[in-house]
Design a protein around this nucleic acid. Sequence first.
DNA 1: TTGTAACCGAGACGGTACGTCCGGTCTTTGT
DNA 2: ACAAAGACCGGACGTACCGTCTCGGTTACAA
Lengths: 173, 173, 173, 173
Amino acid sequence: MHEAVLAIVAERPMAALTMEGIAARASVSKQTLYRTWPSTSAILFDALLARSLDESGAVVVPDSGDLAADLRLLIAGMVGELTDPVHGALLRAVTADILGDEALAAQHRELLLRPQLAAIADRLARAGVTDAEDAAELLVGPVLHRWLLRTRRFDEAWVAAHVGRVLRAVALA
Amino acid sequence: MHEAVLAIVAERPMAALTMEGIAARASVSKQTLYRTWPSTSAILFDALLARSLDESGAVVVPDSGDLAADLRLLIAGMVGELTDPVHGALLRAVTADILGDEALAAQHRELLLRPQLAAIADRLARAGVTDAEDAAELLVGPVLHRWLLRTRRFDEAWVAAHVGRVLRAVALA
Amino acid sequence: MHEAVLAIVAERPMAALTMEGIAARASVSKQTLYRTWPSTSAILFDALLARSLDESGAVVVPDSGDLAADLRLLIAGMVGELTDPVHGALLRAVTADILGDEALAAQHRELLLRPQLAAIADRLARAGVTDAEDAAELLVGPVLHRWLLRTRRFDEAWVAAHVGRVLRAVALA
Amino acid sequence: MHEAVLAIVAERPMAALTMEGIAARASVSKQTLYRTWPSTSAILFDALLARSLDESGAVVVPDSGDLAADLRLLIAGMVGELTDPVHGALLRAVTADILGDEALAAQHRELLLRPQLAAIADRLARAGVTDAEDAAELLVGPVLHRWLLRTRRFDEAWVAAHVGRVLRAVALA
DNA sequence: TTGTAACCGAGACGGTACGTCCGGTCTTTGT
DNA sequence: ACAAAGACCGGACGTACCGTCTCGGTTACAA
């Protein structure tokens, strides 16, 4: 199922993700889909969840002792995921769905976003940052902004500079 | 037309914004819509554009000399727009559309986002900030993050703290 | 379905027979109609076919031994059908469609017209008429003419006179 | 205008005759059409009328003294018109319209059909036929039947045999 | 071994919206 | 002034999916 969803999301415009299409692609009857998921959004989110809980799909927060280096690695990892054709498309699709479905948004928040942000905040707190949650937001927010609105491409220099700014903001540089 | 779109967006789930519905609400034939716009996304964006170019709908960057105060005002203004029931819903709908339509994303970028960010960057540059564009992103990104992903509510204290962090990041505090 | 078609044809102008209308009247979705028939013409013809294959709707050729009497009965039966408000309207509608659709015309010819004419020709041949097919045409043609072009009303006297003329034409009176 | 109508009728399926199409083909605005005719049927009938009143388009009843020969010529002329690609298509289209529009049918009857039948009846009466109108119907009906229902092609032998039968029917052969 | 479930694919069904076309009416524009 | 150009509302066109439903045909466990 997830495979079918990923394939469609990766190779066709978002509006082409339909129950009918997924069922056809997965050689499954529509009823089988509806038995498990109420909507394409739900399948989509499930696929993202599976991929993220999988060891290979998760972005982990490194902890080497060198905070700046760790954050650069973390952000580089995120950027890698966001720019990956398949995972990027998947994330974009889920994000779009979230905007119009508060229930889905809540799930996404609790199961994916909050743990992710908590892990980052934790790493920052361990390095002595106060207001670690706000700091985590300061770190991640601009990445989301640049990716979502496609204002500019990511590059290594920007990642380093961004991490530098964030560390200065929390008075650790 | 815009009025009809705003009404529907404000009071019904996003999926209920259809060409048929807009036509009915605006007492207009479908063909009249299709003559001007190819999709609901286009009408939606047009409505946002109209509202933003209108003097009353735009967020302007204040310039009183006191940078911190100005940024707090600016962010408070943004937050006000984002949390306004009508405008917020409109922005959410357009943002969702942008995620699945690169052409629309480009328009949004050029006509709304870039000028907005440029204005902010300009204000920062005038205060002596280098890398003003990145700084603008640092300022706006976390706001987008919090709004889009609905992680936490906005409040005045956070706005002030956030502006403080950004100013520290650009070494002006 | 047939019932809905008959009702519409009987009580409204021919142009008002639409897929949309039939679907509504039959409390059926448009797709259900399109799954079975490609056009209103096809449904119409199907309704006529059903009615004609039904024992109650068919005009049978009587065979009592008295040819003149039999033909008078036959023509009277035809006239009865053609002047019946419902069946007449149905026939008129199908005839109009036939004029613009050769495929439909062929079906009509093979399934309804030819058997009908063959039965008449058979009756005539049994009475010793040569060129029975042409004679059948001579019998039926003027009825069609008078009905289709609405030149004059039918009455019993005309039927008798007409049959007399036809029998004289084939040299049996 | 008539030219445009004839062209469309001759080269495209009947359903393709639209006000919009005629206007385009004749390089005329729709309003100009509506100023003169209320429907495509009306234009169509007008075109037929013009062509029939024109000396070249009318079928005249010959009167050489030899009734059989005259009728054979008359029927052959009719058959020629009915099988002509352009005029035949025009007649077919008008006939279809007549079936669904009593007002149009009345016009057709008064302006074209009745004079035509009267002329034939007149010729027959002059030759001593009683019930000349019914005889005219007997002559013309089977031609209509064969043409309209496309049962069989016309040929010279049939024309001669048919005329023979009709003359026998009216007791003149 | 033979029921007897549970589950599945296939796909019909009543719906809603799609994007297009045409019917008529009315307004604007140019000659 | 009059006609072309074409905007406009209404509504049918034929198509795609929606979510629900019944239908047979398996597996797989129980009697």
